[in-house]
C-alpha cells in the first residue's frame, strides 16, 4: 500500500506543480521514482522532523499542498507541536504520511512501534485521520486528501496487505466502507490489520455466523451514522485496530455509542497494557495481543454466547 500510495501522489503531482513531497531522510527505493520525475517538487529535509513539519506549513501557507513522509512515530510524535500550531491551527494543507503503523516494524523495537498515533492525531482539532486497509483504499485516500482542506494524517502499512475490494465505487472522507453485511456481530476495522479481521470473519462464517465487516479508512471524522446504524442492526460491535486501546477507533466508536444510548455491546480489540517489550515481527506481536484472525474469531464467539 505504501508504494501504491506514493505512485498515486506522484501521478497527482505531475498534474499539479504545487504539490510537494518532503521526506525526513527515509524512503530508500520507494521515493526514487518521485525525486527522479519531479525533482523540483521534492525535498529531503534530513533527520529533522520538527523542521520538516514547520517548513511544510510555511510552504503550504504560500499555496503549496505538501506531503511530509517518514516512518513510525517520526512524522507525528516527534513534531507534535509543529503539527498542532503550524499546520492544524493555520489550516495548512499538509498531509502527514506515516509508513509502518502499529507493529509493522515490530522487530526494530519500541521506538518504531506506532501504536498511539491515531489517538494523538485524533485529539488535535482540524486534523483528519486516515488509516487505509489496503492499496485500493490508500490510493483513494491519496486522491481525497489532496482535495481535502487543512491538515491530514495518513497511516500506511508497508506492503503486501490483503485487498478488501478490487475497486471503490464512491470514496468519501468520513465514510466507512462495508465489505459485507451480516447479522449478530459487526466487525469495524481500520488500517492494515484488515487482513486479520477478514480472517476472523471467515472463521466465524465456518461456525455458522456471518458477521458484518466494515473498514474505516477515515478514523476522523468518524462515520457516526454508520456506527448508529450498526448499533441498531447488530447485537455486538467489535472494533479491531493495531493500536493502543486508548483513543483510537474503538474509543471513537465508544463515544458515539455511549451518547446514542443504543445499548449495543462493544468489544474493543487492540493493544493493551504497558509498552511492548517483546521482540518479534508484526504477526508475532499481533498474537501477543489477541489480534490474529484466529484469536479474534475465538474471542468473538465467546462474546456471542
Amino acid at each position: 500500500m505504501r508504494d501504491g500510495f506514493i505512485r498515486t501522489v506522484l501521478e497527482l503531482a505531475k498534474e499539479n506543480k504545487d504539490l510537494e513531497l518532503i521526506t525526513g531522510d527515509l524512503g530508500f527505493g520507494v521515493l526514487k521514482p518521485f525525486w527522479e520525475a519531479l525533482p523540483d517538487q521534492f525535498l529531503n529535509a534530513g533527520i529533522a522532523e520538527q523542521n520538516m513539519t514547520s517548513m511544510a506549513a510555511g510552504m503550504a501557507l504560500e499555496g503549496k499542498t505538501v506531503f511530509t513522509y517518514s516512518i513510525g512515530n517520526f512524522p507525528t510524535l516527534r513534531c507534535l507541536e509543529q503539527i498542532r500550531n503550524d499546520c492544524a491551527y493555520h489550516g495548512a494543507n499538509v498531509n502527514i504520511v506515516c509508513v509502518g503503523g502499529g507493529f509493522a516494524y515490530g522487530s526494530l523495537g519500541v521506538s518504531h512501534h506506532a501504536t498511539e498515533d491515531l489517538a494523538v492525531m485524533r485529539a488535535l482539532p482540524d486534523v483528519a485521520v486516515f488509516a487505509p486497509a489496503d492499496r485500493v483504499e490508500a490510493a483513494a485516500v491519496a486522491k481525497a486528501v489532496v482535495n481535502y482542506p487543512g491538515t491530514c494524517y495518513i497511516r500506511l502499512g508497508r506492503g503486501g496487505e490483503k485487498l478488501a475490494r478490487e475497486t471503490i465505487d464512491h470514496f468519501e472522507v468520513g465514510k466507512a466502507l462495508p465489505v459485507q453485511e451480516g447479522s449478530r456481530v459487526a466487525i469495524f476495522t481500520t488500517g492494515d490489520i484488515y487482513g486479520e479481521a477478514a480472517a476472523a470473519a471467515s472463521l466465524l462464517f465456518q461456525q455458522g455466523i456471518k458477521p458484518g465487516l466494515y473498514t474505516f479508512p477515515t478514523v476522523k471524522p468518524l462515520d457516526e451514522e454508520m456506527v448508529r446504524a450498526c448499533a441498531r442492526r447488530y447485537d455486538l460491535i467489535v472494533t479491531c485496530e493495531e493500536h493502543n486501546i486508548l483513543g483510537g477507533l474503538g474509543s471513537a466508536v465508544a463515544e458515539v455509542l455511549a451518547e446514542s444510548a443504543a445499548g449495543t455491546r462493544l468489544v474493543r480489540l487492540g493493544i493493551t497494557g504497558s509498552y511492548c517489550t517483546a521482540v518479534g515481527d508484526q504477526k508475532y506481536l499481533r498474537g501477543l495481543y489477541g489480534l490474529t484472525g484466529e484469536q479474534m474469531a475465538e474471542r468473538i464467539l465467546k462474546e456471542l454466547v
Binding site: G72, S107, S111, H112, T277, V279, G280, D281, Y284
Partner: peptide, 25 residues
C-alpha cells in the same frame, strides 16, 4: 530480531548492560 528475543533491532534497555533504549535519533 527474532520472535521471543530480547535483542530488538534498535538498542533496548531490557538487555543486561544497556542503560537506555534508543532508536529515534
Amino acid at each position: 530480531y527474532r520472535n521471543e528475543s530480547r535483542l530488538s533491532g534498535h538498542v533496548s534497555h531490557k538487555v543486561p548492560g544497556v542503560d537506555v533504549s534508543t532508536g529515534s535519533l
